[in-house]
Simulated assay, not measured.
Amino acid sequence: MIRLLAILVLIAGLAACGGNVAPAPQEQFYRLQATPLADAGPAAGLAIGRFFADSIYAERPLVYGDPADPHSARQYHYHLWLYPPAQLVRDHLAQTLGARQADFAERRIEGRVLRFDRVGRQAVVELELRVVQGREAVFDRRYAAEETASGDGLRAHVEASERALATIYGRFLADLRTRR
């Protein structure tokens, strides 16, 4: 009888615990929206080749840092990019320039995502962009931009990231113009 009572108390205790567990937060996915350029200028005719990212930038969670601790970076658990940042930036650049994506085109833009962070209200983006002719890089430069989000939410951060990318693309295109 004591065994039966102990089992009933255990079952009642387990049932009570199950009713108090909050549901897990729902995952939220973010994507970039491109604004196509009317004239890609010096990038006209270039395909968009491979883009890479290392470490936490090769994963889908949004990366954030604390302005008071610039040596650390963390990932959100439930706030994710639709695709890893290298793919997002590649797609965004292709849409912005109206270019096709072709990993092995004779003339192409390739890149690497070095930073794609949220630091306080700042979107911090750093890319390495290069123009490749055949197998040789004929132009290679790093670009960085920071944009302040219009609000505290992650949607505002995504929009600030889009503006930072537009700034980088503008600098890249200007450098290509002066290089000619």
Rank of each mutant, 00 (worst) to 15 (best):
M1N: 14
L4D: 03
A6L: 15
V9P: 05
A12E: 03
L14T: 12
L14M: 13
A15P: 05
G18L: 08
N20C: 14
A22H: 09
P23F: 06
A24M: 12
F29E: 07
R31H: 11
L32G: 09
A34G: 08
P36A: 04
A38S: 14
D39V: 05
A40L: 00
A40K: 01
G41I: 03
P42V: 03
P42L: 02
P42E: 02
A44W: 00
L46C: 04
G49M: 04
A53K: 02
D54S: 13
S55I: 00
I56Q: 11
R60F: 01
L62K: 11
L62G: 10
G65C: 05
D69R: 15
H71V: 07
S72T: 14
R74Q: 13
Q75M: 14
Y76H: 14
L80S: 06
A86V: 00
L88I: 02
V89P: 06
H92C: 05
A99D: 06
A99P: 08
R100T: 11
R100P: 08
D103Q: 12
F104G: 05
F104L: 14
F104I: 09
E106A: 13
R107L: 11
R112A: 12
R112C: 00
V113Y: 01
L114Q: 12
D117C: 09
D117F: 06
D117G: 12
D117K: 09
R118E: 10
R121G: 10
V124G: 02
L129G: 04
L129K: 04
V131W: 00
V132P: 10
G134N: 12
E136V: 14
A137P: 15
A137I: 04
V138F: 02
A144F: 03
A145I: 01
E146S: 15
A149D: 08
S150V: 11
G151V: 06
D152C: 07
G153Q: 14
G153Y: 06
R155L: 12
H157A: 11
H157G: 13
H157F: 12
V158D: 02
V158F: 01
A164C: 09
A166E: 14
I168Y: 07
F172R: 07
A174M: 05
A174Y: 01
A174H: 10
D175H: 05
R177N: 09
R179P: 03
R179I: 00
R180S: 10
